[in-house]
Nucleic acid binder design. Structure first.
Lengths: 157, 157
DNA sequence: CGCCAATCATTGACGGAGCGAACTATCTCT
DNA sequence: AGAGATAGTTCGCTCCGTCAATGATTGGCG
């Protein structure tokens, strides 16, 4: 914490770089941890969304989390194949499929969430509980005010 | 900040997800902005490293930023092709190549840094200057304490 | 003085992931 | 009933990163 203790830890100067590095640190470990319950970060993100929002259709799922519809197909396929979620015909719109968490999906998700929390604890071990909360708050605030995104797809976690 | 104001802004609960989303917001715009000077985020990151560290060899470059050596080859290739950097034989170790910024590389980089700052201003527009600094500080602190990474490669920005 | 393991850079093959376009079925609106 | 929009799906393309193998070079150790 003095002048420049370690020569080759270049101080990343831009927020994007810092965000990326810390995300990557988190992502690597999260991927490993989730693997033990058969999940990947994107699947985990989808399950979390399903946990909070009841029976969304795929399109909602996708646009809410910035995932391309065609990518969402394979994600839901995987969840269905593993018995963690299932498609159900929408009662009023036969084009749409509601996505539902299965009991097994709920169980696996809860376990996965514990694992994710552990990982988070490790990744943020340099911060006190107060600082962690501050960080989350700042991230959320920035995100809420950030101009909206063109549709994307991808990782999460 | 009350109960649940907007239904489909799911509050991402995990730090990893927040980091990812904000990074993605930054990354998309950074990519677009850097494109106007012929750069990509990884190239930009490498140039920044060269700006701060004089004449590193490729292996230093790679390991310092967590980029796979084989990936680094093509990155340096691009920089060399565009005349932004060049390889030079290491005076003492003929296996190694020192990477050097060219004058043109310096110019382009400075311009790119201005662009990156603009993007940062947009992405973090929801935060006051004080909050931005706080965010950066927290990110740096977390990163410094985070357990080291297995070698990776990839984006940055 | 000469091998031997380790290291740097580079290449090529492989696999995975995301994206855009095209297609079917269905809805909505008039 | 017809026109245009929308949900989901499929397919192919392309880009990127990873891994193992290779060639040149170094440094250590008999």
């Amino acid at each position: 914490m003095a002048a420049d203790p370690s020569p080759h830890i270049d101080v990343a100067e831009f927020a994007g770089q810092l965000l990326f590095r810390l995300w990557r640190a988190s992502h690597t470990r999260t991927t490993a941890a989730l693997g033990s319950v058969g999940l990947t970060p994107p699947l985990f993100a989808v399950l979390n969304y399903l946990r909070a929002n009841d029976a969304p259709i795929q399109q909602q799922l996708g646009s809410a989390m910035g995932i391309d519809p065609s990518t969402m197909v394979s994600l839901v396929d995987q969840l269905e194949r593993d018995g963690l979620a299932e498609r159900r015909l929408h009662p009023r719109d036969r084009r749409a499929r509601e996505i539902l968490l299965t009991p097994k999906g709920r169980q696996v998700l809860e376990r996965a969430r514990e694992l994710a929390e552990e990982v988070e604890g490790i990744v943020l071990q340099g911060l006190s509980p107060v600082e962690r909360r501050r960080l989350m708050t700042l991230l959320r605030k920035a995100l809420a005010a950030a101009p909206p995104q063109p549709p994307w797809s991808s990782d999460e976690s």
